[in-house]
């Protein structure tokens, strides 16, 4: 049975069904409904909901809870995500699995509460210090977002990495019919062999991002890099929409990709063959596939609700094989299908 849900609610319920029983968070628009949903829902499933005094506290609660090898998560919006960056770096260094939801709003600074995609750099290039990566998933519908929660936890535990589901305020706030994912069976989730669960009767374990000896710390860093390499090889995801015969291919993710799908159909009705390439993993970015595509299309247009952040990755993939163009709105302004179509027309005509 489908439910009529907000993006934030669909993500929260999907997380519960994926087996998350530990949620820490601090409300911030436009994602406060996720926190509120968890406040109601966690007691019903015998989980723990804890509202912290700030996002700095949240991320450190998450750090502690993740050490126990359980499925833990938080959700926030841009300024809150900035506050979490120190803890994110510590958790990445400690190789801890956890899921973050960032419902992006206009920035920088206090910005506004409208949808934006301008935390792309922060999420994909590392907003905290040190050589670390986090897996970044970008759904473009509520259904896709709900379906991603279980996968997010699986990836987090498979690689002992942090996973961010990066959406914007539009996906967070809009309502759509959603078929909620099936419940996972908690008994099928094995306790990881690194989890700190009390050393009674076994050797103590250690979870840390710290070593005073630079050679030992370098070894840890090389291990992280090995993991990131494996993720980049195995976990890249993308969607191709009508690109086979396209004279211009648009690259967009999340809400923007959703708008571009409408544009593709509009444009084709007026005789312009437009395709869409939609990265689903923003890190690892689908460099190889986009590189292949760029050999066969003259023009590529990157559309973002930011001023040329993903554009840098698109250029790295294309490396001059086709002309790369850009259209962006930001600060909470959502581009209309007509605006995007106009910018396509300027390029192809």
């Amino acid at each position: 049975m489908k439910m009529l849900m907000k993006g934030t609610e669909a993500i929260a319920e999907a997380a519960v069904r994926a087996g998350c029983r530990l949620y820490f968070g601090y409300p911030i628009t436009p994602q406060s409904e996720l926190t509120e949903y968890m406040a109601k829902r966690m007691p019903e499933v015998k989980g723990t909901f804890l509202q912290s005094e700030s996002e700095v506290a949240t991320v450190n609660m998450l750090y502690g809870a993740a050490c126990t090898g359980r499925k833990v998560m938080t959700s926030t919006s841009s300024p809150g995500f900035s506050l979490m960056q120190e803890g994110i770096s510590y958790m990445a260094g400690a190789e801890l699995p956890a899921v973050f939801i960032n419902v992006m709003r206009g920035g920088p600074g206090l910005g506004d509460i409208q949808p934006s995609q301008s935390d792309y750099f922060q999420s994909t290039k590392g907003g905290g210090h040190g050589d670390y990566r986090m897996i970044v998933l970008a759904p473009h519908t509520l259904q896709e977002a709900a379906g991603m929660m279980n996968e997010a936890f699986e990836l987090a535990f498979k690689y002992r990495m942090l996973v961010t589901i990066l959406v914007d305020g539009m996906i967070g706030q809009m309502m759509e019919p959603v078929e909620l994912p099936k419940w996972t069976k908690p008994e099928e989730f094995a306790e990881p062999d690194w989890a700190l669960t009390g050393a009674n009767g076994r050797k103590p374990r250690k979870v840390t991002s710290f070593d005073l000896d630079p050679y030992e710390l370098e070894k840890m860093n090389l291990r992280y890099q090995e993991t990131y390499k494996k993720v980049a090889q195995n976990e890249v995801k993308y969607e191709e929409f009508k690109i086979e015969d396209a004279e211009i291919t648009v690259v967009a993710y999340g809400t923007t990709a959703r708008i571009v799908k409408t544009v593709v159909d509009y444009a084709r009705k007026s005789g312009i063959k437009v395709g869409l390439f939609r990265p689903i993993t923003l890190w690892p970015f689908p460099y190889d596939r986009l590189s292949e595509i760029s050999k066969n299309v003259k023009n590529i247009l990157t559309v973002e609700m930011s001023y040329g952040q993903m554009l840098e990755d698109v250029k790295l993939a294309v490396l001059g094989k086709s002309n790369v163009h850009f259209y962006g709105r930001s600060a909470g302004v959502v581009p209309t299908p007509v605006e995007i179509l106009d910018s396509i027309k300027k390029i192809v005509r």
Binding site: M3, L4, E9, E13, K40
Partner: peptide
């Protein structure tokens, strides 16, 4: 006055 309580049974809770 008339006070209407609106319900959509396909919404959470």
């Amino acid at each position: 006055k008339s006070t209407f309580f609106v319900v959509n049974v396909f919404r959470p809770f």
